[in-house]
Amino acid sequence: MTTFAPYIEYARKAFAREATYRIELIAEIGSVVLRVYLLRSLWTALYAHNAAPTGLPLHSMITYTTVALLMSLVLEVDGTRVIREKLREGGIAVDLMKPIVVPFAYFSDGIGQTLLHAAAIVPSLLFALLLVRIDVPSLPVLAIFCCSLALGYGVNFFVNFLMNGVAFWTLETFGLQLIVRWISDLLSGQILPLSFFPGWFGRAVFALPFAAIYSTPLLVYVGIIPPAKWAAALAVQAAWLAATAGASFLLWRAASRRVVVQGG
């Protein structure tokens, strides 16, 4: 008998827990607004001296970076970070002694954190709008953007899960964490559109799972992915979601056979 009740409760408690860190949330909003302003200045300066790259005028570029920053409010929540922390401190034993599917619990915990941070999008957006003007696409585009964002959220969760899951073998993943974070920031299209990368590298980055996290929803939003290609783009995201979820399942199965809880 599996019910969702425990997992809904995990999400609610994570939401409540995150809400106790009010200052952190306010700082996060401030940081996003500041970065929106800085990136607007940066792109404006760059565009003043160069011809606009393929089909991306300045206002689209500013829209892209602003939406990317707002997305980061929910996508930078790493609900699986607890795996690493709990393995180090041995707290994972407590979770494993409960009648729950532990990865589901962590996913729900992540959802709860995400929902709270999502609440920060509204004030961030309002402040950002005082500094920049962003394009607002039509309703169908917004709807597809949301679907694409949801798929990207899933891929992001499982990429993080795989990365943190390595801790089952190494216990220490900080180095890996840094490398993957750098690669992911650059290759997911969070910092700049992937179409900026030249030649074979430009084509290769679209073949990586990171592109499914930020790039696809953002390119849908700014209209570089036209309605005719929506289905294909979302199918690629769904495929990455299935692949990373499958890999996570295998990793968890192998990991739970060799849980070495620290201490004692």
Binding site: T3, A5, P6, I8, E9, Y10, K13, A16, R17, T20, Y21, K98, P99, I100
Partner: peptide, 19 residues
């Protein structure tokens, strides 16, 4: 127990976990 939350919150979570 959930470190940051009131004690009773942890009990509520357990109520849901064990149904």
């Amino acid at each position: 127990l959930y470190w940051d939350l009131p004690l009773v919150d942890s009990f509520e979570l357990l109520r849901a976990i064990y149904g």
